[in-house]
Nucleic acid binder design. Structure first.
Lengths: 343, 343
DNA sequence: AGGCATGTGTCAAAGGTTTGCATAGAACCG
DNA sequence: CGGTTCTATGCAAACCTTTGACACATGCCT
């Protein structure tokens, strides 16, 4: 009925077949150089023939460390996360490192549970938990090495996309185009990123003495973006910077439903550069750098707990520092000068 | 510098603190009922206080089975896969089951390597490998219980979305609207799903005596969809059914670049219902049922290797059978009657 | 009172690996 | 040639848990 499964070969099997002791075989794989080349070759040959691969569980049990790492995200459905995952995947491949993925449905309790579960079976976890309290995060960091994504908390290493300068640049461009009443469409309330972006834009508006209106908070969904259209129109805003592309796309759709067009009637910008090809007109946005973030995050984890940990910072950063990846603006077709009043 | 990590408590610690033997503590957790309620309570209390959780590695080592399962997909970036993953996640949560995810970049060699890696550390893997040869798949199934997704190979359990009747229905609707020259825009060449869909549509066209033109093969990307537009226009096709939504969205964009509009100039349909909210006009498509597929796949894995395996089929299906979940068509705004010739 | 079923707990082996220590032989030096 | 050092390998403990076999106590039946 079900396919028969044969037991995999163990060190012992290989040792017997090769006429050496178990420890010798073990050393052939784990501390090469201690074994003479001839023995080593013979053992490898036998091992290959027997299709031997070291038992990960047993190894982890004794070394007290697992080859795997965990990735905890609020919503795996978000393209930002999948490209991050994909990038992480690529670097992990060379390291025999498996990646646990947990989607927490944006629930802080689940976040905690999952982290604890992963702590045991991973040598580290990449945690993207925009809502969890900092003290919870610290607590978890006592269980397992952590790298935070898109959030910084004192004393814990993190990687985030730093879009502050890009946001300012984009804001300035809108102003240059003639917009004097610009909206910020917020993302999820508890989100660290949202706070950052909102503050950056607000600061810029203040120093340029341009009016910034902060639209009602949203949950970051496409639907929320659609809904936001009415507020934008009511308030007579001519350009809005959305928390991210999903929201921006929703807003574009919402405006269309009210017979308004982008960018002729109102300009819209996004963030993360994730829906670039899909929405029309092409969204002017800011690169999310999620691939780079994923790559850095896993690299830090891998070599902070790797075989040569302690030999100094390899990424050119202190190990508990937070590193920001600079984002840039990508210009497409969703912004333009505001319609003149007389139109 | 880095956060200090304290060793987690073991059975032994709990046993000593509670004044019982190790085995007693073990049984409190693994075979309840063998231990008297009083002892059990006391032990649990102590365990809680010590923050004890059984060491997964040690447990797996001795039981010869892991709590985790693996998910292997060609491209985690595809929304079909992420919703599948999300659904699987939800059911796994109740089972303390971690999910390994591997993105294989559509590379058969990586698929194989990753499966072998997961085999050791998982109690089963959900394999979505549209390109791998059937014999490779069989081989892997000798290493670890498998559930195939969107592909069926004799003797191996699988779950797939069955859109044959929906495809026929959709095709019929196009014909009713007056289309007489309909195109099929193929997905990745090696893909099992692509073959199924192409054949279903071709069969229907034959029996309805309507002309079906099979467009050039694509790699399934958005860009390929954009490119396909020229062929569609050259051949004077009035409606095209695309392999999936990504391709369909690309095609819509491509047509727009040639000044043609959907559905006025040509009708376009997709598959998977994944980009519904994002493209304009809303895509008429077929539900992918990825969530349901994910849910079923993991459920089969979980209870085929679960504690009560062998107590009979729990899902109402034989354990090595393949189960299809019926897809339905969702009508939006990307199809219409063809322009009459005289326009 | 002796025998027995039942309920509760302990002992020790097993699972596959890593690794500190011991050993044995070889090579080297004086 | 005796002694020292070095290299290659083996032995056995340890990691933490599960589990079959067994021991002990209790209470019941005859």
């Amino acid at each position: 009925m079900t396919t028969p499964r044969t037991k995999p070969a163990t060190l012992k099997d290989v040792a017997e077949a090769a006429g050496v002791s178990i420890s010798t075989v073990s050393r052939v794989f784990s501390s090469p150089g201690r074994i003479s080349p001839e023995t080593s070759d013979r053992v490898r040959e036998v091992a290959r023939k027997l299709r031997f691969t070291p038992n990960v569980m047993a190894r982890s049990l004794i070394t007290g460390t697992s080859p795997n790492i965990g990735l905890v995200v609020p919503d795996i459905t978000n393209p930002y996360m999948t490209t991050l995952l994909k990038a992480a995947q690529r670097v992990s491949r060379g390291h025999q490192t498996g990646i646990f993925v947990a989607d927490t449905d944006d629930d802080a309790e689940i976040e905690r549970r999952v982290c604890e579960q992963f702590a045991q079976q991973s040598r580290g976890v990449i945690l993207c938990a925009p809502r969890m309290t900092a003290s919870h995060i610290r607590e978890i960091s006592g269980l397992v090495p952590l790298v935070l994504v898109n959030r910084v908390v004192e004393g814990i290493p993190s990687v985030y996309t730093d879009s502050r300068s890009a946001l300012r640049e984009l804001f300035d461009e809108l102003v240059e185009q003639g917009h004097r009443r610009i909206g910020y469409l917020p993302g999820p309330a508890g989100s660290w990123s949202n706070k950052q972006r909102a503050r950056t834009v607000a600061d810029r508006a203040r120093s340029l003495e341009v009016e910034l209106v902060r639209l009602d908070p949203t949950d970051g969904t496409h639907a929320a973006g659609v809904l936001a259209a009415v507020q934008v129109l009511e308030l007579g805003i001519t350009a809005v910077m959305a928390f991210d592309d999903v929201l921006a796309a929703g807003l574009v759709e919402g405006l269309r439903q009210h017979g308004k067009s982008v960018p002729d009637d109102v300009s819209v910008t996004g963030h993360d550069d994730i829906l670039s090809e899909l929405v029309h007109p092409g969204l002017t946005t800011i690169t999310g750098q999620s691939a780079r973030v994923g790559q850095l995050a896993i690299a830090r984890l891998l070599d902070s707990s790797g075989p040569d940990a302690g030999s100094g910072p390899e990424l050119g950063v202190l190990l508990d520092e937070s590193v920001g990846v600079k984002a840039t603006v990508v210009r497409r077709h969703s912004t333009a000068a505001p319609r003149s009043r007389s139109d």
